[in-house]
């Protein structure tokens, strides 16, 4: 019971928070909520299966682009629905053709995907529409964006919890441990991986769609910024990618740390990002949450 009540109380608290903070505070809340959502959605697929995906921004950017293209033609909820469908369709096509790849091949492919989508959109805009930048003039307030993102983040974590308890979660965990064992024990590998990949992609796409009204101007080089993919991975890894709350636990402090760095060490941010990446992989390869659990267990034994 307490496992359900505590997150719900936290959610209510987070939902009323905008009334108490400044514009900048709200900006921080949006950023933190976005990265919690991205990292949790990433972990939904990659955390369990150990298929490290660098395609986050391919979906995130597609969401933003969908809003840019459709925002004047359709009402807002329909725009979000179209963005989600676009993300799902893309994930299906990509998933069917690539989830047979494993290990480093999948990582490289997923990284290439963001570049591929970006070049396709650029080609289309140059040769068909003859313009590259698009504008988003939507009357969505910062608070509105925050509440939507909070809802999406909460839904992602709830979905992860639900999947984790069911057959799909079990299947994904076995796949992550050993694919051959999984295949021999009768798990439909392709279907399980594809289901998780598409779910994760739909959430990533929606996150991109929800934040896009904040930039007004959309261009492939702006929305397909590979840093988003890297940040998402490192946040999830730091917290613990195969724990329910791990990605959120990694995302919030890292996001705040980067914000602080950009104000105090504006020139050295990429260097510090690189060092942090190395540090996380070396020092807490499993993430903070599993490391802490291990420490507690050892204490209990001693």
């Amino acid at each position: 019971m307490i496992r359900l009540l505590l997150p719900l109380a936290a959610l209510v608290l987070l939902a009323v928070l905008p009334a108490l903070v400044s514009e900048y505070g709200l900006g921080l809340l949006i950023g933190a909520a976005t990265y919690v959502t991205l990292a949790s959605a990433w972990a939904l697929f990659s955390g369990q299966t150990h298929y490290v995906s660098l395609a986050t921004v391919a979906f995130y950017g597609t969401g933003a682009y969908a809003v840019a293209v459709l925002n004047e033609a359709l009402p807002y909820p329909a725009v979000l629905l179209c963005a989600a469908l676009a993300g799902a369709a893309m994930a299906l096509a990509v998933g069917l053709s690539t989830l047979r790849l494993s290990g480093v091949y999948f990582v490289i492919f997923s990284f290439g995907l963001a570049e591929l989508v970006r070049q396709l959109i650029t080609w289309y805009e140059v040769n068909v529409t003859g313009t590259l930048g698009r504008y988003i003039f939507l009357d969505v307030t910062a608070r509105g964006i925050y509440w939507q993102m909070l809802a999406l983040g909460a839904a992602t974590i709830a979905l992860s919890a639900w999947i984790g308890r069911g057959r799909l979660g079990m299947a994904l965990r076995v796949i992550g441990d050993d694919e051959e064992v999984a295949a021999h024990s009768g798990i439909n590998l392709a279907r399980s991986k594809l289901a998780a990949f598409v779910l994760s992609a739909v959430i990533l796409t929606l996150a991109g769609a929800i934040t896009s009204p904040r930039y007004v101007y959309v261009e492939p080089s702006i929305v397909f910024n590979p840093t988003v993919s890297f940040l998402t991975v490192i946040m999830a890894l730091l917290g613990g990618a195969n724990r329910l709350w791990g990605p959120a636990l990694g995302a919030v402090p890292l996001f705040l740390a980067f914000e602080w760095l950009s104000a105090h060490f504006p020139d050295t941010y990429p260097v510090l990002l690189g060092l942090l990446f190395i540090g996380v992989v070396f020092l807490v390869p499993q993430g903070i949450l599993p490391a802490a659990e291990k420490l507690l267990r050892r204490r209990a034994e001693a």
Binding site: S22, E23, Y24, L26, G27, L28, I30, G31, T34, A142, T211, R214, Y215, Y217, I222, N225, T227, E259, S262, A263, P266, D267, Y269
Partner: peptide, 16 residues
């Protein structure tokens, strides 16, 4: 502030 060439960070920096 450094906007890191990201519009998301830029918007937040202006709010700040």
């Amino acid at each position: 502030y450094d906007n890191r060439s990201s519009n998301e960070d830029l918007v937040r920096a202006i709010e700040r």
